[in-house]
Design a binder for these strands. Structure first.
Lengths: 200, 200
DNA sequence: ATATTTCTAGAACTAAAATTCTAATTGACG
DNA sequence: CGTCAATTAGAATTTTAGTTCTAGAAATAT
């Protein structure tokens, strides 16, 4: 029904991802992306409303992948292995990790994502909060509010902190990181029923 | 010997700091700073070689303050109270903390600080590494390399992770944070001699 | 073959930020 | 009081990134 395309949306998204993994979000300028793909501007704006729009799709895609996998583990219920998810994910997705985990969401949006994307991001955040909440109710960690803080810290903040340095230096995550995460997790979450036997 | 100044370097640095605390490094554009201070461009470039130069002075000043205080604690030697330093510093310096701890150094330098400043930053990093190294030798945490990772994680990474959320939301740091840091620290660093008695 | 629609092309436009440059002030000092 | 250096002043330039716009090319259905 019409001319066939030389490029796909994904060509642009992939290229932007590569540029970001190498040099951060600022390195993914429209012209750098264009040059990387070998496409003219027109072909870019034919597919994306704006650069922010591309950045949004890229970030949301990765964040949704990451969170979906994390939730699968959460369902199973083992707290420690949920805490170990992040280092494992980073090992399995080194490029994606450098994009998703080294920067803040704001670095991907000059404050103006299309509203549809802001909604998606909001949903993601709400789901995560709900999942953690549910888990928090199962442990005893002082008040319910405190238990939530505790769970979020043990399952997300500490693992992130443990991997960040390696992400920044672009080095593989040593297995010592898992030990550190495990030890913190055990200390932070009072043992429901399972002792601290290693999973990975 | 000459005309008296209407502004000081510090006027510009303070104003930039305020802007960054409110809206991040990108909010501290030269024109925003100029407007905040009420000065014309000429007066700015009379004092600073470039915007990067101003950002460098601002960042280095804060980093040096932070690190100096941290080292005073390190000398004393109590590991747990060193780990609790960061939340304490954030409580005492909320504005400075938002500038120093919410962003990466690169956010303050578009890749090009004057070499003198890069040197200062390098020195800071080396001093920190040396201090941690010294401490690492006193604890038993596997190989010497592992002990260093462990100490850095317990004294810096974990406390940072514990406060970041509150920094971002611009909320006061709850005392629960100290508990979490303390618990992790105790779990990570094998007790030299002191048990886990609370200090703050 | 031609009409229709999608896609390619890239020159031109816009906007924002950093920086330069030249001229004018101003205050202390001889 | 006139000179000199530090400082103020701000218009103008440069740079860089994002975006718009108009024209043309290509695939497919009729």
């Amino acid at each position: 029904m019409a001319r066939s395309a030389n490029f796909t949306k994904d060509d642009f998204i992939k290229c932007a991802g590569r540029l970001i993994a190498e040099g951060g979000p600022d390195a993914a300028t429209t012209s750098a992306i264009l040059q990387g793909v070998g496409a003219p501007v027109g072909s870019f704006y034919h597919r994306f409303a704006s650069r922010d729009s591309l950045m949004g799709e890229l970030w949301l895609g990765l964040a949704e992948d990451y969170q979906r996998e994390f939730f699968e583990l959460l369902r199973i219920g083992d707290v420690v292995s949920a805490a170990l998810f992040t280092p494992r994910w980073v090992r399995g997705h080194p490029l994606e990790a450098r994009i998703l985990l080294m920067y803040r969401r704001e670095d991907f949006a000059s404050a103006k994502w299309p509203p549809e994307m802001s909604k998606r991001a909001e949903t993601l955040g709400a789901e995560l909060a709900a999942g953690l909440q549910e888990l928090a109710e199962k442990i005893d960690g002082g008040s319910p509010a405190d238990a939530l803080v505790r769970v979020r810290f043990a399952l997300l903040d500490v693992p992130m902190a443990a991997i960040r340095r390696y992400l920044v230096k672009n080095e593989p995550i040593p297995s010592l990181v898992d030990d550190l995460v495990r030890e913190c997790c055990a200390a932070l979450i009072s043992p429901g029923e399972e002792p601290v036997s290693g999973s990975r």
